[in-house]
Simulated scan of single mutants.
Amino acid sequence: MSSLLAAAVDAAPHLASLPRLAAASAQPSGVPDVGPGEAPPGADGLLTVLRWVAWSVTALCVAGIFGVAARMAVDHSRGGGGEHVRGLGFVLGACLLVGSASGIVSALI
């Protein structure tokens, strides 16, 4: 048995006597609770632009799926194989990111 492991085994019974840390929910004094915050004046215009961007990106995702499907149909009629799976994977990955963008941002905030 290594000396480090032996020291850890010897110290284990003494760990219970160490002082406990304060509860995680306790607020330190002097730190204000700002709450969830509020949008600044004029934020409606920014939200409108974000809605337009979200709509545009969603339309591009649908167009990307149509584009991959069209290339697959043309290549299939020419006797091509399934090389477009990679392109479809990228388009579906983009669709996944677009659909979960607000959830990802909410989780990070």
Results as ranks from 00 to 15, higher is better:
15 L>T: 08
22 A>V: 03
60 L>C: 14
63 A>V: 06
37 G>W: 03
72 M>I: 05
15 L>C: 05
46 L>A: 06
96 L>V: 07
81 G>T: 09
65 I>H: 00
69 A>T: 12
98 V>S: 01
28 P>C: 04
53 V>L: 12
103 G>L: 14
24 A>D: 14
37 G>P: 01
47 L>M: 11
83 E>F: 06
101 A>Q: 13
34 V>M: 14
101 A>V: 15
58 T>I: 07
41 P>Y: 04
15 L>W: 04
63 A>I: 07
101 A>S: 15
62 V>R: 10
5 L>Y: 07
93 G>W: 08
33 D>E: 15
109 I>S: 10
77 S>G: 12
79 G>R: 10
67 G>Y: 04
38 E>W: 10
35 G>C: 01
63 A>S: 07
52 W>R: 09
77 S>D: 05
63 A>P: 00
36 P>S: 15
33 D>M: 14
49 V>I: 15
58 T>H: 07
77 S>V: 12
36 P>R: 15
84 H>G: 03
94 A>P: 00
104 I>C: 03
54 A>S: 10
87 G>A: 15
4 L>C: 08
86 R>H: 09
104 I>M: 13
67 G>K: 01
94 A>E: 00
76 H>Y: 14
24 A>G: 10
26 A>F: 05
108 L>Y: 10
83 E>A: 11
35 G>E: 00
38 E>T: 12
40 P>K: 02
99 G>L: 11
6 A>P: 00
76 H>S: 14
105 V>L: 13
41 P>A: 14
71 R>E: 13
10 D>I: 12
57 V>R: 06
15 L>N: 02
109 I>D: 10
71 R>D: 11
75 D>T: 11
81 G>W: 09
77 S>Y: 08
96 L>N: 06
40 P>E: 06
61 C>V: 14
5 L>D: 12
52 W>C: 04
42 G>T: 03
19 P>V: 05
27 Q>W: 15
6 A>V: 08
16 A>T: 07
31 V>T: 11
109 I>Q: 09
56 S>R: 10
47 L>T: 05
32 P>N: 05
61 C>P: 00
5 L>M: 09
23 A>Y: 09
93 G>F: 12
9 V>C: 04
99 G>H: 03
21 L>R: 06
52 W>H: 05
13 P>Y: 03
25 S>K: 07
70 A>M: 05
